[in-house]
Computed example of a mutant assay.
Amino acid sequence: MTHPRKLVQTSLIPIRWGDMDAYGHVNNTIYFRYMEQVRVEYLEKLGFRVMPRGSAPVIINASCTFLVPLNYPGLVEVRMFCGHPGRSSVPTHYEIRLQGDDTLYATGESKIVWMDVATGKSVPIPEHLRAELPPF
């Protein structure tokens, strides 16, 4: 069963030579950086910043399924989707392709939780972010 989700951000990220591993393809850890970058760009577009006070988004889990190896050179296209939000969290999904190529190279997921920075406790998702999420 697939859950409804909304495309919220697409980012283009160049593959760097240093992203490669001994096997000649992009190292698995770099895929998490690609997902992080699109997520940060989306949240910054909505006016959220990582701040040492107030409330802020944090990631409580992340996963990636590697389907086809990526190689240098290339321009990675990362699509970020948001799913049904809870009180303080929203699931996110990612598709990683090369620009201009329909091949799905990897998929990923993470859960964003809003927290009070001082207490470390979850807080409700800000209303202006909730308004941007998929209607359910």
Score class of each variant (00 low, 15 high):
77 E>G: 00
93 H>I: 01
110 S>I: 01
32 F>L: 15
68 V>F: 11
112 I>P: 00
121 K>H: 13
64 C>R: 03
124 P>R: 07
31 Y>C: 04
3 H>G: 06
59 I>F: 12
70 L>K: 07
65 T>K: 10
54 G>V: 10
127 E>Y: 00
54 G>N: 09
49 R>G: 02
20 M>R: 05
131 A>T: 11
125 I>P: 01
10 T>A: 11
115 M>K: 07
70 L>C: 11
72 Y>K: 08
5 R>S: 12
13 I>N: 04
32 F>H: 15
134 P>T: 05
48 F>E: 01
75 L>N: 04
115 M>D: 00
121 K>A: 15
118 A>H: 11
66 F>L: 14
41 E>G: 02
29 T>Q: 08
94 Y>G: 04
95 E>W: 02
31 Y>E: 05
113 V>H: 01
25 H>M: 10
32 F>V: 11
89 S>G: 04
57 P>K: 02
58 V>L: 15
114 W>R: 06
114 W>L: 10
96 I>D: 02
131 A>G: 01
61 N>I: 09
32 F>W: 04
28 N>M: 10
120 G>L: 14
82 C>H: 09
33 R>Y: 04
12 L>P: 02
8 V>H: 02
18 G>T: 15
1 M>R: 12
4 P>C: 04
107 T>M: 10
132 E>I: 00
48 F>N: 00
50 V>Y: 10
13 I>A: 03
119 T>C: 13
121 K>G: 03
84 H>V: 12
38 V>F: 03
12 L>S: 04
65 T>C: 07
133 L>Y: 00
86 G>L: 11
111 K>T: 15
122 S>G: 13
61 N>Y: 10
103 T>W: 04
119 T>R: 14
40 V>R: 01
7 L>Y: 04
62 A>S: 14
35 M>C: 09
42 Y>Q: 04
119 T>V: 11
100 G>Y: 02
77 E>M: 12
99 Q>R: 10
52 P>I: 06
13 I>Q: 05
128 H>D: 14
105 Y>H: 14
110 S>T: 08
86 G>R: 14
109 E>A: 09
127 E>I: 05
34 Y>E: 02
62 A>F: 02
123 V>A: 09
34 Y>K: 03
87 R>H: 10
32 F>K: 10
